[in-house]
Design a protein around this nucleic acid. Sequence first.
DNA 1: GTAGGGTTAG
Length: 342
Amino acid sequence: MLNNGVFPDNFTYPFLLKACSGPCSLKVVQMVHTQMIKLGFFGDIFVPNSLIDSYCNFGVIGVSSARKLFVFMEDRDIVSWNSLIRGLVKGGNLKDARQLFDEMPEKDAVSWNIMLDGYVKAKDMDAAFQLFEKMPERNVVSWYTMVSGYTKAGDLDMARLLFDKMPVKNLVSWTIIISGYAGNGFTKEAISLYNEMESLGLKFDDGTIISILAACAESGLLTLGKRVRSAIVATGFRCSVAVNNALIDMYAKCGCAEKALVVFQGMSERDLVSWNTIIQGLAMHGDGVTTLKLFSRMKKVVFDLINSLSLVSYVLALTWVMLTRVLIIFILWKGIMTLSPK
DNA sequence: GTAGGGTTAG
């Protein structure tokens, strides 16, 4: 763009910074920051705010840069505060986050929810609940945060209590509570709520399926996993790669390695997760020979993507195959020894 | 520009 003589404006940088939020290095954000100072776009509050947000993706160092920027800013709006608090919360610095939260001249629903999420992530449900009770207004996000927080803390009674009190229940609320019960091994409740959701005629989406299947995988809940699978088939739901991956994992973790393999083989598109999931699933519960064959196929297809997880599964499968072979040889040898005349 | 259920590893 610059080479073509086109100059950036105040809309360019927020977009550019958004693109730097991934595995992009902190140095690039710093470079963009320097250029922004030179060209002077800080008059538009969106610009420094998106810079704060970008810095906050880079751990403690990033957050301290965000903080410096925040301090030097002439004008700040709620988003500036919220973004920095989010950065502190993300870095686990709840004390400073809370201090800023209390200092804020004005709070909106996002401010409250960020702080709430901080306590939930820190597994401090008591502090979260206290804040939740103090909130001047609660929106769906506040309720999601609390209910999913309690399910993650294993307190299904509180999760259920709040779920029942939710003023508006939608697909996400149902997903959270069903996955919560399923993931914690409460089979009966999970299935009964799933039935209830179905009877309400709610149309599930990728998020619902993936979340429930992951919870089933976690606690080996094959019954519900199968129910979700038949619902997918019955409704003709078009499975994304992620949904199929979740299915593979659910089957493998519930002890159905063959079914996991069937799903994998039926996929028209696969990603690294598909390969890792099937290889891991088979290495744990299936046969080692198939795992090794799949691994060598994987080497041809996604060689540059192979990571430590694939390697661990490979070594596991290899060890398993070797052990089985040694065992077979040992048994044969014992047999020959007992049969041979003394 | 900031918050929310979401596939492998833990």
